[in-house]
Design a protein around this nucleic acid. Structure first.
Lengths: 201, 201
DNA sequence: GACGTTGATGTCTGTCACTGACATCAACGC
DNA sequence: GCGTTGATGTCAGTGACAGACATCAACGTC
């Protein structure tokens, strides 16, 4: 028999989410979370670098899904197609069963700016990773950066729509829509609009 | 004569940036910043909601530049053209003289994840504002969100390139390039790539 | 089967970001 | 002259987090 109950980080995550949902992020202390699973506050910080991180841990496999998507694209596929695949691949990380959980988690995040900051930072680091994967395929630096950053933004948009209470579509479907929307938007746009001072007649 | 030296927040900002640049963000205490301009720590927090905010204050006029850009576009201009204008308008907030200052500031931010989080959050809130401005022009919700988020991402990309030591172009020029790059990327992409399971032959 | 090692945890102590409550006092309007 | 105001000081407190050191079941080793 183990000296301590196993799965401490998981139990901490579960307890933290429940407490945050019930009484709010700021109203919940790390001491409270730790005690609710029978460990010390110090142990909490051994598993999570800070209080917010308890909600964001375990995203490396999520990040990997994006990279896998990029790498699954044929070598000569355009960068944006690789990005499109990466979004679909990542979408599979959020099956319908997970929606209720995701909703609760997101409502906690949406209620606290500090958590939103962390979420955006994760998304941004994700974009950096995806950009690297694109560069590894021979995409040039600017294109890779733009494609990856845009892709990450769009995933964020798609995800927040997926979370909405009345939404029925799959995350992958929504992501496709969002990508299509971008295509439409850029096609409508005047490709030289930025380079001229005055609008078109 | 005033009871205290005027311009306390500005002096705090200046002192903070200098200290952060000299010894690092985490190695600098708020007490230290406050004392270096002859006020109490409490006064520091009366001007800035938290330690990081001292580097980000005064961005409401910057945000306004984006909105102005959107509103300056002809009413029937495509959403992405309005976004393109908004980037150019915002770019004028960073004339060449300001580059050295921006570089120092950015090097401080780049050295600290917590500051990056704040920066991303500001950019994201900016996107929300721009999206609202687009919706006010009749752009539908999804298009406005996608266009604004993408625009904000692209501004971030352009700005970080402008900051680079060997960069000679103007921020506005770089922003144009980045926007053009997005256009190229989406044109190369297969518009239905996301909707199919298998790649093109 | 005694024994050294390991790894997750507890304990203790300290720093620092941030906040609320209350006091101060020059400037300013009347 | 006087009451008000607004920016500041003072003080005490809370909570996030980190370093240093102790503990002790499990496990392999001989």
């Amino acid at each position: 028999m183990a000296r301590w109950e196993p799965g401490t980080p998981e139990r901490l995550q579960k307890a933290a989410l429940e407490l945050f949902a019930a009484q709010g992020f700021e109203q919940t202390t790390t001491l409270e979370i730790a005690q609710s699973v029978g460990v010390t506050e110090r142990t909490f910080f051994r598993h999570f670098s800070d209080k917010r991180e308890v909600l964001f841990h375990g995203q490396q496999s999520f990040e990997q899904a994006f990279v896998d998507g990029v790498e699954a694209a044929p070598p000569d596929a355009p960068a944006m197609d690789a990005v499109a695949r990466s979004l679909r691949s990542a979408a599979s990380f959020f099956p319908e069963e997970r929606r209720p959980y995701s909703r609760i988690r997101q409502s906690v995040i949406d209620a606290n700016p500090a958590l939103q900051e962390r979420e955006l930072h994760k998304l941004s680091r994700l974009a950096v990773t995806v950009a690297a994967a694109l560069r590894a395929r021979g995409v040039d630096d600017l294109a890779a950066t733009v494609a990856a950053q845009t892709g990450a933004s769009l995933f964020g948009v798609a995800f927040s729509r997926w979370i909405k209470e009345d939404e029925r579509r799959t995350l992958a479907d929504i992501a496709d829509d969002v990508l299509r929307e971008l295509t439409v938007l850029t096609r409508q746009a005047d490709p030289e609009a930025g380079a001229r001072t005055h609008p078109r007649p």
